[in-house]
Structures are given as structure tokens and as C-alpha cells.
């Protein structure tokens, strides 16, 4: 989780990722941020996030993103 928070904070230092729960619904992260974020996550965690995983509920909070990573790690 700490590694993910570091990636998120590097991407957007202006956002409080520990408490924010509507990153997509409130349009805090745009599509460019999402692509950068996924590239970093794929590199750091060795998973493959694909367009089918790009649902708002998977990216609205740091917790949701972490759950997605864990799910994909289990599938590997």
C-alpha cells in the first residue's frame, strides 16, 4: 500500500490520496493521469491492468486501486 501511495503522490502531489474516495467520479484524475498511473503500477507490481479493469469503482480511491492490484496478483 505504501508503494502505491508513493506512486500516487508522485503523480499528483496536490491530492490527498489517503482520504479521497471519488478520484474518478469527481474527475480528480483525468485519462492522462490514469494512463501514467497504470504504467507505473504495472511496472512496480508486475501486473497487467487492461482497459476492461478501467471501471470507476476500481480507481475511485487508493484502497480500491490496491484491491484491484491484489486481485490481479492472485490471477497471475
Amino acid at each position: 500500500m505504501d508503494e502505491l501511495l508513493e506512486i500516487l503522490t508522485n503523480l499528483r502531489p496536490d491530492v490527498d490520496f489517503e482520504n479521497e474516495t471519488s478520484l474518478i467520479d469527481s474527475e480528480i484524475l483525468d485519462s492522462f493521469d490514469i494512463v501514467s498511473l497504470i504504467t507505473d503500477i504495472n511496472d512496480a507490481f508486475g501486473v497487467e491492468i487492461t482497459p476492461r479493469d478501467l471501471k470507476p469503482e476500481n480507481f475511485n480511491s487508493a484502497d480500491a486501486i490496491y484491491s484491484l492490484i491484489r486481485r490481479l496478483e492472485e490471477e497471475e
Partner: peptide, 18 residues
Amino acid sequence: RDYVFYPLSLSKPFGKLS
């Protein structure tokens, strides 16, 4: 965005190029 931009930008060839 959903059917062109994400599939392209997250595709393997684009990842390798990056």
C-alpha cells in the same frame, strides 16, 4: 476514450515503445 484511447495507450506495443 474508452474504446480507442485506453486500449491504444495501454497496449503492449505502446508500452514497449514507451
